[in-house]
Write a protein that binds this DNA or RNA. Structure first.
Lengths: 205, 205
DNA sequence: GGAAATAAATGAATATGATTCATTTTATGC
DNA sequence: GCATAAAATGAATCATATTCATTTATTTCC
């Protein structure tokens, strides 16, 4: 109950406990973090402000775990693919965290670095300046949606053939849920990059 | 307190009250629905099972509000664009509802019809069968991400020029948040359709 | 017409969760 | 040593989801 020799708590301990709970159960709560760390619930408030604060710390942690990769010595297509993939991979490290993050799409400083790399890469593609913002956003949307789908439970995607014959044909050869998401992600990535290439060549407008 | 002449409650009343609260405040709760309808909290459980149940009813409602549009008499490109746009427009009707829906990506029966239309349309594009599933998923990811971004608060997307020059250039000419999202959506839509077209022509692989 | 079943609404209770705050105790700077 | 800040706490508040036995009204069926 009194103040101990060395502090029992730290922001890092709290965030790690929260992340562990999220990975295991898909959510965290103050009582469970406190139990995990062997402290009282109210003690947590000496280090952090609120639940939202913990979520923002988790977001930062997710983007600090993987260092950005150098990208300048590749074709812009390969560079873009690598950047988008690494963006998605960060979410894939802690899939259950994604739903907690996306409900408030904050463009935190940690994400900005990757956006900057992407902007530089897209400038090399020859895309007109006014299209670079929309291109980054589109990529963001795609990666976010894919990350969200990756967290969805393994469901049987089995449309009844009578009602939805085309859907039935389309999903006939799907493996596990993870494989399906991975295939979709690879497909969308190629298609997006190819589409941007066309747009850059002004073959669509 | 006793049983009234005519029922005070119905599933529809509950769902409408929940939707109204979501539109106004971004969330709903049992106490507030009950207050809104002038009934007791526990009465709600005579009609609905749980909070999740209400969310699923809201999801269904969102997709029933807008009837599906006939699509067979257009080029597959225009048809695809229309389908994706209408998918997104449903979310735009009730933006604040989106975060509640995406946290559990369920492919409810209501969405299946649109998927079927999309599958039929993509078959007309000449895309190989095994790519149709991934194409639908990619489009889904993109539309979902865009819908989520549309709910984000109007933030000042103003990267400091020293740190992020390319990002600065890319976002120089942005208007309101809604305009930015709309531009990004239109761009991504064109790019996706163009990319799929290339893929169908087997010019990328 | 009346008994039995069912529908509707309720109050009270339980459990979990976020958050505040005054209090106690310990460390630390001067 | 003393003032002050740091650390942890218990207790309290408030909101929420959910359960359940109970009361009353309506319906059904003989």
């Amino acid at each position: 109950m009194p103040r101990p020799r060395s502090a029992l708590l730290s922001v890092e301990l709290i965030v790690n406990a929260a992340l562990k709970l999220v990975d295991e159960t898909g959510d965290f709560s103050f009582p469970r973090i406190a139990r995990e760390l062997g402290v009282s619930q109210s003690s947590l408030y000496n280090r952090i402000e609120s639940r939202e604060h913990i979520i923002e710390l988790l977001r930062a942690q997710l983007f600090e775990e993987i260092p950005p990769q150098p990208v300048a010595d590749q074709s812009w297509q390969d560079a873009a693919r690598m950047l988008i993939r690494s963006y998605r991979d960060r979410f894939a490290q802690h899939p259950k965290l994604v739903p907690l993050l996306v409900t408030q799409t904050v463009h935190a400083p940690v994400v900005m670095g990757m956006y900057e790399d992407l902007a530089l890469t897209l400038e090399r593609s020859g895309l007109p300046t006014e299209d670079i913002g929309p291109a980054i956003a589109s990529i963001d949307y795609f990666a976010l949606g894919a990350a969200l789908d990756a967290t969805a439970p393994d469901e049987v995607w089995d449309p009844s053939p009578e009602q939805f014959p085309a859907l039935r044909r389309a999903t006939a050869c799907s493996g596990t849920s993870a494989e399906r998401v991975a295939r979709a992600f690879n497909f969308g990535l190629d298609v997006l990059v190819a589409g941007i290439e066309m747009r850059a060549k002004q073959e669509i407008y």
